[in-house]
Amino acid sequence: MRNGPVVVGVDGSKPSLDAVAAAAREARLRGVGLRVVHAFLWPAMHVPLGPSPTGPPDGGLRNMAERLVADAVEHARTAEPEVEVEGEIVTGEPLTVLERRSRDAALTVVGSRGLGGFTGLLLGSTAVHLSAHGRCPVMVVRGRPEPAGHVLLGMDGSPAGEAAVEFAFAEASLRGAGLVALHTWNNWTGPAVGGPGEPLPLVYDMDMLRDEEERVMAEALSGWQAKYPEVTVHRRLVQARTRPALIEASEDAQLLVVGARGRGGFAGLLLGSVSQAVLHHAHCPVAVVRHREAEH
Rank of each mutant, 00 (worst) to 15 (best):
V151P: 06
G92S: 08
R210H: 13
V69N: 13
E84V: 15
V83Q: 09
V10Q: 04
A287I: 04
D156I: 02
L269C: 11
V165Q: 06
V37T: 05
L174Q: 11
L130A: 00
A163H: 07
L17R: 12
H150T: 10
R175G: 12
H281Q: 12
M45L: 15
S102K: 05
V286Y: 00
A267K: 11
T54D: 15
T242S: 15
H296Y: 04
L68S: 07
L122M: 11
S112A: 14
A19G: 14
P145W: 10
S16L: 01
N186D: 15
G114Y: 06
L256S: 09
G143R: 01
P196F: 08
G197N: 04
G31I: 05
H281P: 05
A106W: 07
F40E: 11
L122E: 00
R100S: 14
V36P: 07
H150G: 11
H234C: 09
V165R: 08
T96A: 15
V138I: 14
G124I: 01
L182K: 11
R30E: 02
G268F: 03
H281A: 12
A181K: 05
D207R: 13
R142S: 04
A226V: 12
L179E: 06
V286R: 00
P244I: 10
L34W: 07
V7R: 05
H38A: 10
A106V: 05
G117E: 01
S102Y: 11
G195L: 12
A260Q: 02
R100D: 13
V288W: 01
L279E: 00
K14N: 11
L122H: 03
D207Y: 08
G176M: 05
H75M: 09
E198M: 14
G117V: 02
G161Q: 10
E230F: 06
R28H: 12
R144W: 06
D18I: 03
H296I: 03
Q276H: 15
T189I: 13
F40A: 13
P159G: 05
S131T: 00
P191H: 15
E146Q: 11
R67C: 07
S173Q: 14
V110C: 01
M217F: 03
W185P: 00
V289A: 08
G194K: 03
H183L: 12
A160S: 13
R77S: 11
A218M: 05
S173H: 15
A168L: 12
R241C: 09
L98C: 03
V36I: 04
A24I: 01
M217Y: 03
L202N: 08
N187Y: 12
P137I: 05
R30T: 01
G149R: 06
G272L: 05
E26D: 12
G134T: 01
D18R: 12
V238I: 10
